[in-house]
Simulated assay, not measured.
Amino acid sequence: MIKVVRGNPTPEELAAALAVVRARAALAAAAAPSVPHDRDSWSDPSRIAAHRLPQPGPTTWARTYWPS
């Protein structure tokens, strides 16, 4: 949605502004990659779940963040 905040544009000026906005949106959509990027190993949640969880004990809290 486009809203005129200030001024009183003519229909021609409004049509020209809308044409520019639509052209920019079409250009951005064409430039965007259509194939999603593969996750790298750092952001893959299975890298953390692949390790065994530490057994309960007095020092378990210190080892829960970093997988060994």
Rank of each mutant, 00 (worst) to 15 (best):
L18I: 10
R39P: 00
D44Q: 06
R63T: 15
V35F: 06
T59H: 10
P67S: 09
A29T: 13
A49D: 10
H37V: 11
W66S: 11
A23K: 06
R6M: 07
A26P: 00
A26M: 08
S46V: 09
R63E: 03
L53A: 11
V20K: 05
P9R: 08
A17S: 10
H37F: 09
A49Q: 06
P56D: 12
P33M: 07
A49S: 08
R63N: 05
R24L: 14
K3M: 14
L27H: 03
A16S: 15
V20Q: 05
S34C: 14
S68Q: 13
S46G: 06
I48T: 11
S68L: 11
H37S: 09
S41K: 02
L14F: 02
P54A: 13
P45V: 11
P45N: 02
S46K: 08
D44S: 10
E13W: 00
H37N: 11
A62D: 11
A15W: 01
P54K: 07
A29W: 03
E12Q: 12
V21M: 06
R39Q: 01
W42N: 14
P9C: 03
Q55R: 10
R63D: 09
P67R: 07
R52Y: 08
P67K: 02
A30G: 13
V21P: 00
A28N: 12
R24Q: 07
R47G: 02
H37W: 11
R22C: 02
K3H: 15
P67D: 03
L14P: 00
S34F: 13
A28T: 12
K3E: 10
R63L: 12
P54V: 03
V5R: 12
P67C: 01
A29V: 07
G7K: 01
L53N: 03
L27G: 04
A15E: 14
H37Y: 12
P45I: 00
P58M: 08
P9Y: 03
R24W: 11
R22Y: 11
L53Q: 13
P58V: 01
R47L: 06
R63H: 14
P36V: 08
V4L: 03
S46L: 12
V4R: 00
A25Y: 07
I2C: 06
P58T: 06
D44V: 09
S43M: 04
S43V: 14
T59N: 11
L18V: 13
L14G: 05
A19G: 05
S43T: 10
R39G: 01
V35H: 04
A62F: 15
